[in-house]
Amino acid sequence: MSREIFEAIEQIEKTKGIPKETLKQAVEAALLSAYRKNFKSSHKGVSVVIDPVSGRIKVLAKKLVVENPKDRATEISLTEVRKQGLEADIGDWVEVEITPHNFGRIAAQTAKQVILQRIREAERELIYEEFYEKEGEVITGLISYQEGNNIIVDLGKTTGILPAPEQVASEVYRPGGRMKFYIVEVRKTTKGPKIILSRTHPGLVRRLLELEIPEIHDGLVDIKAIAREPGVRSKVAVEARDKKIDPIGACIGNRGSRIRNIIDELRGEKIDIILWSERPEEFIAEALNPAEVKRVELDEEQRVATVYVDQSQLSLAIGKEGQNARLAAKITGWKIDIKGIPVGEEEEIGDGEETQDTP
């Protein structure tokens, strides 16, 4: 049986990726527990080891070499030491084998459940460490099933949870569907790692852009800010480190090929790529794309921007149900008040009748 245990350890290392030494230590600890339970041993100097060559299980005990042993559990005579071929003198501590004749059978029966538990714990720890390092990254998973309001996602070695608040209202999560998910958090629990996924997090858009666009991946183009209304529309502000690079063109790609792949992954969510600027007036004007902005006035103290557009551009600047203005306010950090310029008053900008005030 001992050899079978050792072979199982080696096989699990190959198939599960758990280090052999980790498993060996877990098995030895389980066997020691089995020995203490079955042979009523309280001697603290007892250990159980598996010989890496023969696979044989040995129970060893540290004993003090004395002339006349009074406690056979902790002491040994010099004569007995010599019989066992050990080199020691009176007063030395030696490690001697005390393996009971029937220990292999008892150990196998008693330790089996403990061994399996330790192996499961080691597997869980490895999975936790692997996914903990992936927090803030994107992973591909298969929709498995729904549990309450949560969607359970198959991630290969384990499963992840897509909670209701992290689900996009317009998306359908059918079992077997393959999607990309943002890893929000990895928690350690007694039942293994709990991996919280998201389809609504702005980080999903950021990571998809990094995966799809080489200039962003290589650091030639920076993503400065993202504002998102999941499933509907996102605005992404970008800046090129090299003036020779067109950051918007790099993100969109030839005939929109690059950005289209990301839109497809987000199930049709529109993405506006805008140019970031240190100057608030310029950044706010860019953020209201596709509307053309005539003028931006800033109230620094209240952090309010009054934006003037042609009357014909007013509905475009505001967007459907105020969405464009809302996202522009979110990505710039300014409250935006949009005013339409009546026809014929383009040169002399004043208060228009229609306005949109965004928080």
Rank of each mutant, 00 (worst) to 15 (best):
A305E: 02
E321L: 03
D337R: 14
R199C: 03
L266T: 05
E282F: 13
K339A: 14
L316N: 02
I57C: 05
K194L: 15
V53P: 03
K16T: 00
I273Q: 01
E300Q: 15
V48P: 00
P214R: 04
W276S: 06
G141I: 04
K20Q: 12
E286F: 15
G17P: 08
D357Q: 14
G192S: 00
G85M: 07
K294T: 10
F103L: 09
Q323Y: 01
A328I: 12
L86S: 05
I259E: 09
G231Y: 00
I349N: 09
G45V: 07
P247F: 13
Y128D: 05
S33G: 10
L162E: 02
R124Q: 15
T189R: 03
Y308L: 05
I338M: 04
E125D: 15
I76D: 01
E297N: 09
V309P: 06
D264P: 02
A169E: 12
E67P: 04
E10F: 04
A26Q: 10
W93I: 13
E80Q: 10
V46K: 07
C251A: 07
K330G: 09
R279E: 15
E75W: 01
S257C: 09
E297P: 03
G219W: 15
S315W: 07
D337W: 15
G104E: 12
S198E: 02
V138Q: 10
I318N: 03
G176L: 08
V59Y: 00
K243G: 01
V27R: 01
N324H: 04
K58F: 14
Q302N: 15
K180H: 12
L298R: 13
G333W: 15
R255P: 05
A225N: 06
E229C: 02
E95A: 13
Q146N: 07
G253Q: 09
K58R: 15
R207S: 02
T74W: 00
Y132K: 14
R255K: 14
I248F: 03
E346N: 11
N324R: 05
L32V: 00
N324Q: 07
A325Q: 04
E265F: 06
I139T: 14
L60E: 08
T15F: 05
E21L: 07
P163D: 06
E147Y: 05
E75A: 07
H101P: 08
K194Y: 11
I262P: 11
R233P: 06
D242W: 02
E229S: 08
E147T: 02
S312G: 10
G249E: 04
E269Q: 11
I284S: 13
R241V: 01
L116S: 13
K335P: 08
A317S: 03
D51Y: 06
E4Q: 11
D272L: 03
L86T: 03
I274L: 14
E21H: 04
T158G: 04
Q311C: 00
N38T: 00
G219P: 08
Q311P: 03
L142A: 06
D351R: 12
T74R: 14
R267E: 13
F283T: 13
I259G: 12
G256E: 03
Q11S: 11
G177V: 01
I18Q: 05
A30N: 00
G141V: 05
I284A: 11
E125L: 12
G344Y: 06
L275F: 12
G45D: 13
I248Y: 07
K112M: 05
A237F: 02
F181C: 10
E347L: 13
G91R: 02
E95W: 03
T158M: 01
G141W: 04
E123K: 11
A30G: 00
E137C: 06
M1P: 02
A240C: 05
I318F: 03
F131P: 12
